[in-house]
Structures are given as C-alpha cells and as structure tokens.
Design a binder for these strands. Structure first.
Length: 414
RNA sequence: CGGGCUGUAGUAUACCGGUAGUACGCGUGCAUGGGGUGCACGUAGACCGGGUUCAAUUCCCGGCAGCCCGACCA
C-alpha cells in the first residue's frame, strides 16, 4: 500500500474527547473514527489489525474443531422473551419497527444459536459440536468508556458447543482454555485464566481471561508463584495472603481487562428451547452447552494500551497492519525514489505486507508518523542506502537499528 | 442511572454582551531536504431551541452531544 493513497492520515494532536491511551493513539494514527460514545468505525489500518487478531482466533478455534458460521445480528424478540433475557438482561437493545414489531440486536447469540442447533443436532451421533462466529455485538451500556475497550458496539468471537455428557463438556472446556491461552500468547499478551462468577446464567464457576493493564476494569488477585488467579469481586482473600493453591506464593492485586470468558451453560438454553436429541436408547436428552467468548476489538485496545509508548502505537508482527514500513527520504531525488520503488515492488513480490511512505514530506515528519503508526519494522531509503546498497532497518519496539542488504530484506525469514 | 465538567474552523485551542484570534491541517508559490523546516498569500468556525437585552458566540433555562467519578458490566 502506498501511503500517498492511504485513505487516512495521522494527526498531530490527540482528540480532546478521548482520555484513554488506546483511543487517543488509534484516533491520532487514523486507525479508527469515533462515531459516538462507545462506537467506532475501523479505517483501513484499524481494520487490518482487527483482521489479524481475527485470523489468530480463527486458527485456534478451527484447531479445537470449531466450525465458523455467521449468525444474524438483527434478532426477533421472541427467543429473547423465551429465555427471559428480554426483561432480565438490561444491556439488551430493544428496537421497534414501523409495524410495531419488536427486535433486538445481538449482544450474545444463545437465543439464535440454540434454535439453529436444535434443527440439526437430533442424534447423539451429531455430538459433540462447536460452532462459532466472529461478528458485531451490541450492548446498551449506560456508560461507554476506555475507548474501544468498552463500547456499545464491538467485535466478538463467540463459540457455542453442545455435548452429550458433562465429562465431554469438561474435556472440551479444558481444550478451549488452552486454545485461549495460546491465542493471547500469539498476540504477545500475558493472560491469566481467572476464576470468576458465572454471571447471570449459571451458578457454576467460570473462567475469565484477564490481561493485566491499568486500563482494565477488573481487579484480580493472582499468585506470584503458580497460575492461580481469581477475580477480586468473588474472592474473600486479600493482597498479601499466601496462595492457597501452591502454598508457596503470595497474592498480588492488579487491574486487568477481561479479554475472554468461558461458561458452562448446562442445559438452560436446551430447556428454554426444548432442544433434545435421541440418545443410544432412543430417549430424548438435553445437551450440555458451553459458551466461549473473546472480545476481538477489546483485544485491539488492550494491545494498544499495553505496547503503545510516548511516540505512538507499537504492534507485534502477528497483529500489525503491515509488517514493514518502507520510508523513502529526499524529494525529487530520482535515485532514491527509483531504489525505493523497486524495493517496494520486490517486497510485495516476496509476500511482505508493506506500507510504502512515498509521500513528499520531510524526514522528521515521516519518522514521527511512522513511530505513531507502530509498524514493527521500518526500512529507510535515503542517500546512504542508495550509495551503499545497505538499508537501515529500525525496530519500532526496541528502536534498534540494523543494516540489511536488499537480499537480506527479501529473504523469506526477514 | 446518580453526581460533576465541557460544547468555538477539519484538528487543538484563545478572547469577548457590540458576531471571533492563534497554531496545526488543507490549497498556491518560493526556499529547504535524515527527527513534525522556513517565509508569503489563501481556505475555513460559535451544537440546537427558547429567554433576558438596543444587541447573545458570550448571561439564564431547556434539549442534545461528549468526557470524568460512581453504580452497572454476558
């Protein structure tokens, strides 16, 4: 992508109506556009980041056998009334049509997925099954805050699984828990599987996946020795207490952001929708259902919060909108632009995702903006490079400078 | 939802009861060319409704919007 053609451009100043680091940086850098409180549009660069995160999530969900679908986001009110959520869940948006028919927009999809599953899962032979989607969710939050981390519209991956037995559910639950931890680690984040309350729909314990960040809304207690971690709101323990699991560590308290959760829904929704399948004896049975969520757009916010520095955003390769920022310097210098253009073409041929700053701007401005965008590697084409054939490569995260030949840059591993 | 604060060019802001100034951006030109360069010219603005007043962007009321604290948080 040529930066001269890029739809957005960075701004010098942070928006006055954003306080959170993620929103300030993302808006300044032109990754997102604020539509209203808690609702953002994702511009080319931001959309690319979202897609990178989705890709990682998709791969890991496919790896545990999940099948991707796409459910409706405009929902009839009936199933929501059937489960009671229409009245009991206060973040449900309620819409009315011209003919006074009531609708909602999805804030979770049990009400939609369960009737679909009922249609196809009629025998024990059909189980277990896990289906998921990545899509928009809508919640009528009283107060949106923290930029893209807590919005009224956001992108979420939600997977639903159906099982014959509790044992089978537990097996799958454990697999997904591992898949989740793998996802966060691939995104460069350290997440803790945290014991939490099951929320509105189950009395069982659930797991929340928490990333430590000051921008988070949750307080957690975690052991400095083992992996024990618990949401402070359900714990009667305190900071400084000895860890009751490993008896070796001590509990610390920290702010964290919930970037995923998994719930054992039991048979609640199967009952609500009279969803049964035939077991081996031909008897009707209620399947056990699980729900597994990951906040895709929130993850993007958490990543921006966690890695962004005073100069701007910092993306790791797995989520960066582009792998390389190719920056040419020197206006009207035919030699430089010839070399830069050729390198741009070759990098693309080599399969490298490259943003090429071909604009006629001064070096300082280009560098400042490059820092703001946070693309992992910056390759500079200036007089030196043209003369020596060696390119300066700057690592955005560390600031380290390497010198690389054209061949090294085009090598698959680079 | 309770409490507080704020609405001025595209962005960030200043001043003011007599309809607005700066910086950035954007456009044109000249100079410049490895960390947001310099100069000149140009472009562009008071959230909406009502009230007070000779006169309101300014004061008052209401609405709407945004932000913060709390509450809430599938």
């Amino acid at each position: 992508m040529r930066q001269s053609q890029l739809f957005t451009k960075a701004r010098r100043e942070a928006p006055a109506d954003e306080v959170s680091k993620n929103a300030q940086l993302l808006v300044r850098a032109g990754f997102v556009h604020k539509e209203m409180a808690g609702v953002y549009s994702y511009l080319p660069l931001g959309r690319r980041v979202l897609e990178k995160i989705e890709r990682v999530v998709r791969e890991e969900m496919d790896a545990v056998g999940g099948q991707e679908i796409r459910m409706a986001t405009l929902h009839p009110s009936e199933p929501w009334k059937q489960t009671g959520a229409w009245d009991s869940v206060d973040v449900v948006f309620k819409l009315m049509s011209r003919t006074e028919k009531e609708y909602t927009v999805g804030q979770s999809e049990e009400e939609i997925v369960t009737p679909i599953a009922r249609e196809y899962l009629t025998s024990y032979k059909d189980l277990p099954v896990a289906i998921y989607q990545i899509g928009q969710k809508y919640r009528d939050e009283l107060r949106a805050k923290s930029g893209i981390m807590r919005g009224r519209e956001f992108t979420m991956k939600d997977m639903y699984s159906f099982h014959e037995t509790q044992e089978d559910f537990d097996r799958f639950y454990a697999e997904v828990k591992e898949a989740y931890l793998k996802i966060y680690s691939r995104l460069g984040l350290i997440a803790k599987a945290t014991e939490a309350s099951g929320g509105a729909f189950t009395t069982k314990l659930s797991y929340e996946f928490m990333v430590l960040t000051d921008a988070g809304e949750d307080d957690i207690l975690y052991c400095n020795h083992c992996s024990y971690c618990v949401n402070a709101e359900i714990s009667d323990q305190k900071e400084g207490n000895a860890c009751t699991r490993c008896n070796a560590g001590e509990l610390s308290r920290a702010k964290a952001s919930e970037v995923g959760n998994i719930f054992d829904l039991g048979t609640k929704y199967a009952k609500d929708f009279s969803f049964t399948y035939k077991d081996r004896e031909g008897k009707d049975q209620l399947p056990i259902m699980g729900c597994f969520g990951i906040g895709i757009s929130r993850l993007m916010g958490v990543i921006a919060e966690t890695f962004g520095d005073e100069k701007g955003l910092v993306w790791s390769l797995s989520v960066a909108p582009f792998a390389v920022h190719l920056v040419s310097l020197g206006k009207g210098d035919d030699e430089i632009s010839k070399v830069a253009e050729a390198l741009y073409v070759d990098l693309q041929k080599a399969g490298v995702e490259v943003l090429y700053d071909d604009r006629d701007l001064r070096a300082g401005e280009k560098f400042a903006e490059s820092d703001l965008l946070g693309i992992p590697k910056r390759v500079i084409v200036g007089r030196e490079a043209v003369a020596s054939g060696v390119f300066e490569v700057v690592d955005r995260a560390t600031g380290k400078v390497e010198k690389k030949s054209r061949e090294a840059l085009l090598a698959p591993s680079a």
